[in-house]
Design a protein around this nucleic acid. Structure first.
Lengths: 253, 253
DNA sequence: GCGTGGCGTGTGGTCTGACCATTGGAGGCT
DNA sequence: AGCCTCCAATGGTCAGACCACACGCCACGC
């Protein structure tokens, strides 16, 4: 319409770039669309790579790139071979994907450690409350076990490993999949950072003793089914740990 | 040692599979290692794909697969061309990566919606508290804006969009990067689900009115710098929304 | 009949090379 | 100095070849 183009010549015309969709993103979108439409569920098999490439009219490399992304998210899993186990199948394994994503960004100092602590507090308060409200024996036994392992640990490596397991066990005992996975992902992504902080610290044994006392109190509150107390103790514990252990060896001073 | 093999013949020997590392995972590990060691930071340029492939002695396709994964996580960004803008650069854009990961798993019903609600409550309580404690005017104006947009919305699509923006604005006002990104990711990944619930609901206007009243009260509590009240109101609001709107059209009856 | 081994096929994993599109940067000309 | 052209570097995509894996089927021996 040359007429309207002339009428609007007083306001500058903005020529926006037309985004080009990358082939692998088109594949990603296509798979996501199938999921959203309910046509793909956990356990389902995707078409073979070569077939999917043919159907979507892209190269097999582009299909593979999309599949890699979804594998890293824990939504797909590929298996070579023939027969029932072969191919690319929809899975439900978000935890490691979350962990790796968060660990990368924490490693890049993209989340200030104070921010991470607050997020932990929010999530782990919820975990502890829910665990105190509704955990049953096999899950409580896992918490016991982690506490026991910390008791017997002789190196900070062992302590740290069991410390992580303790927090993960509480998160699992919360009976809330998303809270558990987020809690696990954050705590796991911090494992190395916390270990380094232990090594930097002058008197690790004192700190470990205090941390372990706090663990015992948290454990007792959960055992006594006191949600409020559990939540408060977890918060206190995380704040103490974050204030006491010098974290952020690089990029955070 | 045939001698010791004979001695231990009483206990069955377990032949464990030797895991083969996939080429793209080796590349991923190599990049993560550089980050952990502090040798890669936001803004840094990676070697060109062909060079990285040569250095790591893998194919360029494997390098690309690893880069795709890290791109989807918001840790890398690639740009064609020559000169300063070209190549693959380290970025700090976790939010969309989190959103897509969570949206995929929510789409696959891998997280029960009750679980998602509890996680939202944990995070959004924290967001609201922090916002009430420390938000300043430009951020508060964003919250105002979203509330205003909801007030003027004439379709549930518009309402939903502004509703999401309201929650995101509070999360941003919390001043906590990780809490904000997690909150945003979860709320964003639910946008479609909530919209469908609005459509399924018999009398949308009533519900919208109640939701909007709740939004106003949350907004007021934040403005009055009352963290406890803000947190309680957010929790009440999310519980009301989750109980009132019929979610889980597929796979969650 | 049962167990074992060999073969064939389908699938993902990896590599190579060719080509394309994009995006400066350098050099030459006015 | 400004503009234009050319070139090179970089990521994007594709195709094809080959490899490794993992069954399933069939034949053979006991």
């Amino acid at each position: 319409m040359p007429d309207s183009a002339e009428k609007s010549s007083r306001t500058p015309i903005s020529w926006d770039p037309i985004p080009r969709s990358r082939a692998h993103e088109l594949v990603l979108d296509a798979i996501e669309e199938q999921v959203t439409a309910g046509r793909l569920a956990v356990g389902d098999l995707l078409p073979p790579e070569r077939e999917l490439a043919s159907q979507l009219q892209v190269s097999r490399a582009s299909v593979r790139e999309a599949i890699r992304i979804l594998e890293s998210q824990g939504a797909l899993q590929s298996q070579v071979g023939s027969g029932r186990s072969a191919g690319t199948r929809v899975t439900a394994l978000p935890s490691e994907g979350l962990t790796r994503l968060l660990r990368m960004h924490i490693g890049l100092s993209n989340f200030p450690l104070d921010d991470v602590a607050e997020a932990r507090i929010a999530l782990e308060r919820a975990s502890a409350m829910l665990a105190a409200q509704q955990a049953e024996e096999p899950q409580l036994a896992e918490i016991d076990q982690a506490l026991e392992t910390m008791e017997r640990s002789s190196t900070v490596e062992e302590f740290n490993e069991a410390d992580t397991a303790f927090h993960v066990a509480i998160a699992e005992a919360a009976g809330n999949r998303l809270v558990a996975d987020l809690t696990t992902a954050i705590r796991s992504s911090l494992k190395q950072t916390i270990l380094e902080a232990f090594h930097s610290h002058g008197t690790p044994s004192e700190v470990q003793i205090t941390l372990q006392e706090q663990h015992h109190r948290i454990h007792a509150a959960i055992r006594e089914q006191d949600p409020q107390r559990s939540a408060e103790l977890v918060e206190e514990h995380i704040r103490f740990a974050m204030e006491t252990l010098p974290m952020g060896g690089h990029g955070e001073c």
